[in-house]
Amino acid sequence: MSDPKAGGDRLGAKLVSDFPDGLLAHAPVMTNYLSSGKTSERRFRQISCHAITKSMADDDKPYADIAERLIWHRNLEGLTQQQYAEKIGVKRATLNNWESGNYRLSLDGARALRRIYGLSLDFMIEGIDDALPMTLRRAWRERP
Rank of each mutant, 00 (worst) to 15 (best):
T53K: 14
E77Q: 13
R114P: 01
Q83L: 09
D59A: 12
N75Q: 15
A110S: 05
L76Y: 14
A64G: 00
A57D: 13
E86C: 02
S100L: 04
L76M: 09
D60T: 10
H73C: 04
E126W: 10
L79N: 09
T80N: 09
N75A: 10
P28W: 06
I128P: 00
T39R: 12
S106I: 03
M30R: 13
K91N: 13
L107I: 15
A64H: 03
T39C: 07
D108C: 03
L79R: 12
Y117S: 07
T135G: 05
G127C: 10
V90L: 01
T135I: 08
E86S: 04
P62L: 14
H73V: 04
R92M: 11
R69G: 02
L23I: 08
L70R: 00
R43P: 05
V29F: 05
S35E: 04
Y117R: 02
D18L: 03
R42F: 09
M56W: 05
S55R: 13
E68T: 07
D60W: 11
D59K: 11
D58P: 10
I116Y: 02
K54F: 14
Y63R: 04
M124P: 06
W72H: 00
G78L: 13
K87N: 05
D59W: 10
I125V: 12
R111A: 13
R104F: 04
T80A: 03
K54M: 14
I71V: 11
Q46Y: 12
R111V: 07
R42C: 06
S36V: 03
